[in-house]
């Protein structure tokens, strides 16, 4: 995805997020957009087909989303502006904006073997101390780390894995 698309996606996402006055509303809209995106994902052929007119596509969206006119309007706007193809990216960014609203910090935690529930809880607590907010971590098992943890959070990589230590030791010894 090129820079222009990323910037456009961010702007649409910010606008969509700004529609909600409360966190609950934002949360509901974000989930709804995600569901719509998942539903439309299986209808890509129809949505991208030039044989179906824009008017028809709009009508389908409006009927399906009769309960939430703002989301329907948003999808229609994307169709009109020929930015419909950005929907998956926009959905991701809306989720990120929602996280910011709710003070949720996402983290990926890599470990050599599955962590116990207590270990997971402890990791999240430590991360919450460092980054503030509520930590929602994805725990991923990666045997190549050999031991220790590797955490990626807020654009930072905290690497305490054995793999890194060995790599550093190798660097040190071959210097």
């Amino acid at each position: 995805m090129n820079s222009t698309n990323r910037i456009a996606a961010q702007r649409y996402a910010a606008a969509y997020d700004a529609l909600s006055k409360t966190n609950e509303e934002a949360s509901r809209r974000s989930v709804l957009l995600h569901e719509v995106q998942m539903a439309l994902d299986s209808q890509q052929e129809a949505m991208n087909s030039p044989r179906i007119t824009l008017q028809t596509k709009k009508e389908v969206v409006r009927t399906a989303l009769s309960g939430s006119p703002e989301t329907a309007n948003f999808i229609e706007l994307l169709l009109e502006a020929k930015r419909y193809y950005l929907l998956p990216e926009i959905t991701r960014r809306v989720a990120t904006l929602l996280d910011d609203r709710l003070g949720i910090v996402r983290a990926q935690v890599y470990a050599a073997k599955e962590l116990t529930a207590a270990q997971k809880r402890h990791t999240e607590q430590v991360l919450a101390k460092r980054y503030g907010g509520e930590i929602k971590a994805d725990f991923i098992t990666d045997p190549s780390l050999l031991g220790g943890l590797k955490i990626i959070c807020r654009g930072e990589q905290i690497d305490g894995s054995l793999q890194r230590r060995f790599a550093k030791l190798e660097e040190e010894l071959t210097k």
């Binding site: 990626i152 654009g155 990589q157 305490g160 890194r164 230590r165 550093k168």
Partner: peptide, 22 residues
Amino acid sequence: IIKSKIEHFDTSVDINEIGTVI
């Protein structure tokens, strides 16, 4: 020398700000 290098090897964790090549 190797022994001392291993003994005094820095065991702290690495904290780096990272990015991804697009």
